[in-house]
Amino acid sequence: MAGSSSDQTFDVASLVEDFDLNRIGQYVLVILFIGFFLAPLETGIMTAFKTNRAVAETIPLMPPLAEGFTLDNMTFALNALSGAFFNSLFMAIPATIGSVLLGSMAAYGLTMVDWRGQMGMLVLFLIGIFLPYQAVLVPLARFWNNIFPLASMMRPLFVAAPILQDYHANLVPLMITHIAYGIPICTILFRSYYQGLPSSYVEAAKIDGASITKIYRRIILPISKPMFGVVFIYQFTQIYNEFLFAFTLITGSDTPEAVVTLILPAVGASTSGIDFGIRMSAAFLAALPTLIIYVAFAEQFAEGLKSGG
């Protein structure tokens, strides 16, 4: 009897294990969180494709129904933003490449080459990271406008160039500012990666007779490809989304050289109220380039994070 009853409890126990309450709880929690984070996104997308009437009459989460569906918002937003897209990319891509490349070089010089005063230089880079942007805004504007008016100096060059207009010259100071302010953080990111590399790479190459620049070009640069993916994505997102510098160095949202972040707040806002459909469309369009960059560099990004980036 005792034996059979213990068998019974054993069976029950194993049944319960199959419907582990803990596990069910975990799944429920995960689903709740997913819903919580995805709901605004879904609302946004749905709103972007709804007519004003549909926005007013349906629940935000609902997809647009037959007559509530429209592409007008998207077309409008695209028209409003197209110039700004070009401006943003024209400024952000060179700025990203510049800061990432220079950061990597600086990190190489700070970790893999021996020279006096390395520590002092590193401290300067660290200070560069912690310098608050707000503190430099006014001096920066004065510098580019009065002391070194690069934009007006370069205007003739831009007039002569194809595709570009003279006002695009106003983006160059912004680009250079971003490169300068991006170098410190890029340097620190690359530095931690380079510190993890065995020093024997550089030493072996030295004995093989390679110069400092050749070691960088042939050994270190190719080896740090995954890290480039990580830093590139990070830096592009930063620069593309940046507002303060753009707001200070470009005079306003109504100028032709305005970048996306300057124009975005104004799209869809008018005296008659806010057009949510247009705003949402614009927001999604504005986010598109960063999404594309993520997808393009996804492989390097994953590998870079894996190898201790």
Binding site: P198, S200, K206, G209, R218, P222, I223
Partner: peptide
């Protein structure tokens, strides 16, 4: 400097360049 000493060195971790083929590694020197 090392490259003018007419020496070759083998390292504990081999220090093979991971992004190059064996041929490129040997040829590099």
């Amino acid at each position: 400097v090392p490259q003018n000493r007419d020496i070759a060195m083998v390292f504990q971790d081999y220090a093979l360049y991971p992004h190059m083929t064996v041929r490129e590694n040997v040829r590099f020197g």
